[in-house]
Every structure is written in C-alpha cells, then in structure tokens.
Amino acid sequence: MTFKLTLIRGLPGSGKSTLAKALAMDGVNTIHLEADMYFVNSQGEYHFDPSQLPNAHQWCQQQTEQGLRSKQNVVVSNTFVRRWEIVPYWRLAKQYRAQFEIIECQGDYGNIHGVDASVITTMKKRWQTWQNDRQ
C-alpha cells in the first residue's frame, strides 16, 4: 500500500490551508495537520502564543509520525520558509517509506492570522528553495 507525505509551503495568506483541506477531503485515509492547530482551544478559538511555537511544531511532527506509522496519507501545511524546517518531515517520509512531495503556494489571499506585512517581507527574504534531489 502506497501512502504519501505532502508538505504545502508558502507565505501567510498564500492558500496553504485551503489547499491542504481540499487534499485531505479526498476521502482516502488522509489527515491534514498544521502547527496552527496547536493554538485552537476546545471551543474552536485560535489563540496564538509565540512562546509556544516550538511546541506547536514538535506537536505537528509527532502527529505526522503517528499518521505515517499508521500508513495514512498526511498533508502538512506550514510556512516552511527554511530548508531545515522541511528536513524532519523528509526524514520521516524516508523512515516510513512514504512518498514525499512538496507543493508551494504563491497566492496572495490575505492572511487570517493578522501577520504583519513587515513579517511577511522578512519571510520572503529568508525563503529557501528545496532541492528535490534529496529524495
């Protein structure tokens, strides 16, 4: 049985979450994850705490590993600005023998979390490409 880990990367407001939700709705054993889910409380309200960001990313990686261990397709949407942010997921895909793909979103739909334009500009300047030859 073939299963896949798909990373969707892009700047805030580029359409990552929308695309990830659409891919996860294919009805074929697929889960959608993103670090932002860590900040949603039991009432469904989003409360971002920058001091918890490392924990949010660790949680996302752990959930990804659980999904891959269960041979589920996993779609992870995060900014993934730097290569080092992708590497742990690439390693998980290799470890669990999952297909690995990266999709980049480049739209500009306005971000729902109120990320300041100056922060987005900084992220653009720090953007690194991913070399597919790692596979």
Score class of each variant (00 low, 15 high):
2 T>H: 12
2 T>Q: 14
4 K>Y: 11
9 R>T: 09
10 G>K: 06
13 G>L: 06
15 G>I: 03
16 K>W: 04
16 K>A: 05
20 A>P: 00
21 K>L: 06
27 G>K: 02
27 G>V: 01
29 N>L: 10
30 T>K: 10
32 H>A: 05
33 L>P: 00
33 L>D: 00
40 V>Q: 12
42 S>Q: 14
43 Q>C: 15
46 Y>N: 06
51 S>K: 13
57 H>S: 05
60 C>K: 02
61 Q>R: 15
62 Q>T: 09
66 Q>L: 15
66 Q>D: 14
66 Q>A: 14
66 Q>V: 14
70 S>I: 05
71 K>A: 15
73 N>K: 03
74 V>R: 03
74 V>P: 07
74 V>D: 04
75 V>A: 04
79 T>W: 05
81 V>K: 04
82 R>K: 11
82 R>C: 02
84 W>N: 13
86 I>N: 02
92 L>A: 08
96 Y>F: 15
99 Q>V: 08
100 F>E: 03
100 F>V: 13
100 F>I: 12
105 C>L: 13
109 Y>Q: 09
110 G>A: 07
111 N>M: 00
111 N>R: 00
113 H>Q: 07
114 G>A: 15
120 I>H: 00
120 I>Q: 00
123 M>S: 02
123 M>I: 01
125 K>T: 02
128 Q>H: 11
131 Q>S: 07
134 R>K: 02
134 R>M: 06
